[in-house]
Amino acid sequence: MGREVSESCLENLLIEIVSSFCTGFYVDKPELAARRIEAIGFQVGHQLSERCAIDQPRFTDHLEAIKFICKDFWSELFKKQIDNLKTNHRGTFVLQDNRFRWLAHLSVDPSLDASSSIQDPSAMAKNKAAQATGMHLYFPCGIIRGALSNLGIPCAVSADISNLPACSFLVRIKA
């Protein structure tokens, strides 16, 4: 077992990422804030998958790489694997975590549809609560995109929390 810190250290950092990039300079610029938060996640995913994939044989196809994300990589992050993986075999994958830890402590309005809002942060500006929750999803989406990018797979990642506490990540691999 490697080195550990208390979960609340990480939780508090994630809260501060969102709150410091959504106030002050960025208060009226949710798109910019979203991009910054996603970029932080991307950086983390990129570095962490580098370290985590070090002993892996080269992946022969996209599915292999996605499976690595679902099993080894997710276990590094959450000590559990992704619960459900679906694919249309044409470059789109849905990774579902039945109890996504990073949202467990957030109060979320279950009626909001984050799958559409996360694509367009300005659209959620009307609903502050929806916006705040949406902001918390950019970090994990960035992590997944960063991890796959490090494995040589460019993609777009969005999240759907219409089924809380489950969270689904939609990965679209760019041809």
Binding site: R3, S8, C9, I40, Q47, L77
Partner: peptide
């Protein structure tokens, strides 16, 4: 007794914040 996470994740996240 508390829930713990991989310190690497915490360290890298903090580093990415500073960098940003």
């Amino acid at each position: 007794s508390v829930e713990r996470v991989n310190a690497e994740l915490f360290t890298l996240t903090y580093g990415a914040i500073v960098r940003q």
